[in-house]
Design a protein around this nucleic acid. Structure first.
Length: 495
RNA sequence: CGGGGCGUAGCGCAGCCCGGUAGCGCGUCUGCUUUGGGAGCAGAAGGUCGUCGGUUCGAAUCCGGCCGCCCCGACCA
């Protein structure tokens, strides 16, 4: 038998690995903690990129590219930033290799030691603000609204495919503004872009919020985030948008003359999402049969499997299958007709199921005779015999229905796993029994937050934005300390 | 960095305790029959047993060193 996927209920972590492997999304690499993104996985990322890139451009941003190597000294300019990233940097110290003195192999050539070490970017704030300092003199130079698609490296102790790898792909937006208000508006705007993308394209419901100080990006004044809930009840940060204040402008001496002829530091934001989103997608929708993809991001929305025995049947079946392929393609859908003879229909059914293709059409001699086709939905695994007449429209509607069903299902799960609690005992019980988001009062101190994390492994995922979750804005008392609380915050165990 | 597991054919594993010509399943290749939910039969190819050293007439197997990967924790997007 072919690949068996571990049941979610048996071993969730293994299920996740099995799904990734069976869907051919990624492989392990010879280097610990790195991964090879296979064509199926990369096609997903390309679809995400295409949508996000369009959204970034619609909001006035341009793409640019900054180098992967950053002078080591740049990192130390911003105090918080160093603290956050120094311990996970890959460092380049030499520029060439030479034969190993004792015997075989290679070693860094001592003669090629660099004057200053370079780090492989874990994020690009430093090199970008170094550059912006040269670009910006006057209020007329602002705003600068740039984004870059890039890879970054963070030397992680423990890795998981897509969710946390040492190298990952992402986009990072970096903007420069004349006023605090404008920078904050930009930060919030990009958070909205991410939330829209997650919900409307990924069909992943998210909570918008602000991070507490301990979870904040190193160097940010405020970190806004979208938080999603995975099927095992753990939270996943799916995107972040940072208001950086003037921290980086001060560190890199980036000033401008304002309209009153005064010298002022520039206001900054940065925002990013990564290939981690693919992990979020997998863990939100997939089932024990394998990957389930939302139609709006699926690299292939429809697969057509022809079925025939004799040569006579073959011609008629393929003719009909090709006609249908054309019809659907012309209607704007991405379709694959899999007429490979080396694989049998049953094998193909399973193959496309584990790969999460939203709609499968099967057409055989009976269908040719009756003018029908078998239409199967991946999300509900329902099958129906439908007429070929008007098929493009019906498939289009089915794709839209799948997109909606996935979102509704994920939201229902999220809502069923979002629990307000008022006592610490209830808090611990909910974490153990149902998991998910727990809405509790918090006194606002890092001490209480740290103690709760220490005792329960749950962290504050975010302080929800006003109006985001009903009932979180009422005042109360901290469940642990009894001190006053200005509102409920979202706790969860997280990835 | 701690705890656990594992390195034998492309993948998954057995063989090791008790040393004696390296095996099974899947996959791959060829042929025929099949094809509406992972086909059947026949044949074939494919491995310096992670690595270095030791013991021995002889090591996948016994002994020692090293390396690597995965999972679980601490840390993180």
């Amino acid at each position: 038998m072919a690949d068996v996927i571990t049941k979610r209920a048996d071993d969730y972590a293994q299920w996740y690995i099995d799904v990734v492997r069976a869907a051919k999304l990624a492989d392990y690499s010879p280097v610990r903690g790195c991964m090879i993104i296979r064509p199926n996985g990369y096609a997903l990322w390309e679809n995400m990129q295409a949508v996000l890139d369009r959204m970034f451009k619609e909001t006035g941003h341009e793409n640019a590219y900054f180098p992967v190597f950053i002078p080591q000294s740049f990192l130390s300019r911003e105090a918080q930033h160093v603290e956050g990233f120094a311990k996970e940097c890959a460092v380049v110290t030499h520029s060439r290799l030479t034969a190993n003195e004792d015997g075989d192999g290679l070693m860094p050539d001592p003669a090629s030691k660099l004057e200053e070490n370079l780090i492989v970017r874990p994020t690009s704030e430093t090199i970008i603000w170094h550059t912006y300092a040269n670009w910006i003199q006057s209020w007329r130079d602002l705003p600068i609204l740039l984004n870059q698609w890039a890879n970054v490296v963070r030397w992680e102790m423990r890795t998981r495919l897509f969710l946390r790898t040492m190298e990952f792909l992402w986009q990072e937006g970096h903007t420069a503004h004349a006023t605090k208000e404008e920078a904050i508006a930009e930060t919030k705007q990009m958070l909205e872009v991410y939330a829209t993308f997650a919900q409307e394209y990924m069909a992943v419901p998210v909570i918008r919020g602000v991070k507490t100080e301990s979870e904040r990006f190193a160097g940010a004044v405020d970190t806004y985030c979208i938080e999603a809930l995975m099927q095992d009840g753990k939270a996943l940060q799916a995107g972040t948008s940072h208001f950086l204040g003037q921290n980086f402008a001060k560190a890199f001496d980036c000033t401008f003359q304002n309209e009153n002829n005064e010298l002022e530091y520039v206001w900054a934001t940065s925002w990013g999402v990564s290939t981690r989103l693919i992990g979020a997608l997998i863990m939100t929708h997939s089932d024990d049969q394998g990957l389930v993809l939302p139609p709006r991001l699926a690299p292939r929305q429809v697969v057509i499997v022809p079925i025939y025995r004799k040569d006579g049947e073959r011609t008629a079946v393929l003719e009909a299958a090709e006609r249908i392929e054309r019809e659907l393609t012309d209607a704007g859908m991405t379709v694959r007709l899999d007429a490979r003879e080396a694989y049998r229909p049953g094998w193909k059914f399973n193959e496309y199921e584990v790969q999460g293709v939203p709609v499968r059409l099967a057409i055989g001699p009976r269908d040719v005779a009756n003018g029908t086709v078998e239409l199967a939905r991946r999300d509900t695994r329902e099958k129906a015999i439908v007429p070929q007449e008007g098929l493009a429209r019906r498939v289009q509607e089915t794709l839209e229905a799948i997109q909606q069903t996935l979102f509704d299902r994920a939201r229902a799960f999220r809502d069923a796993h979002t629990t307000p609690v008022d006592t610490y005992d209830d808090f611990k019980a909910v974490l153990e029994e149902t998991g998910g988001f727990v809405l509790a009062h918090w006194d606002g101190t890092a001490e209480t937050e740290a103690r709760i994390k220490e005792e329960t492994k749950a962290t504050i995922r975010c302080i929800p934005l006003p109006g985001e979750i009903e009932g979180t804005e009422e005042e109360g008392v901290d469940m642990l300390t009894g001190k006053p609380s200005r509102g409920r915050v979202v706790f969860a165990r997280a990835y």
